[in-house]
Amino acid sequence: MNNVARNQKIAFTCLSVLGLLTVCILIYIIGYIVSQGLHMISWEFLTTKPRKMGSEGGIYPAIVGTVYLVLTTMIIATPIGVGAAIYLNEYTSRGKITSMIRFATEALAGIPSIVFGLFGFAFFVILLKPVTGGWSILSASLTGVTMVLPTIVRTAEEALKAVPDSLREGSLALGTTKWQTIKGLILPTAMPGIITGIILSIGRVVGETAAFLLTLGGTILIPQSLFDGSRTLSLHLYMVAMETGAMDVAFGTAAVLIVLILVINITASWFFRRLVKRFS
């Protein structure tokens, strides 16, 4: 009996250590990046162009590139993803087509980002060059759309499923069409959940590098239109760290990214909590 109690004590201690270790790792990573990079962050760093291949100066073009890319990707991906979720949840029941769509969505979620990059390169950058301008924000956005689609579809579907059927019945019984019910009642009710998915997708686009390495071109110039190449903060970090060797700038950029991701996560969980509150 004594032995059993001792074993349990040892095991539980080990598991607690693992749990706390996870938190420590996170704190260490964030702390390390921030302590190395925070001193770089200044108004000037955020608002001026890089000099000497990015080894000096600011990260302004990368911020602009990130914003353009995120906006374009989400403007295209949101209606498609939410539309797909509405179709799956409101318009069909289990059938061949539905299971095919679900399978494809799952498969998309599992494809490595560099493979998305290869596809984006072959399809959007090379084949559709007359339309997309080759390496461009548009090519990268379209690639990004295929990447974030599963996240948006899944979260939107969860949010739609959480809307009780009694609301659908209540609305339809008033003589509204299905689409009126969805537009006027179901979507607004599910909105916090849908927004959570959108914010998570924004995080994915901000953090993604491999796919954009092959589709965005990586120029350090400020993009003038969607058909221009650009670089995102993540891409900038990679390029200055691996190609220019400007570690100060790399850490500074990383610190900016960490702050961005923190903001994105906090916002997402705020919306998620609102969703939970709405149904309890």
Binding site: I29, I33, G207, A254, I258
Partner: peptide
């Protein structure tokens, strides 16, 4: 949520 390039830099 941490971007992979940040993991890489770390």
């Amino acid at each position: 949520g941490i971007p992979s390039v940040v993991y890489g830099l770390f």
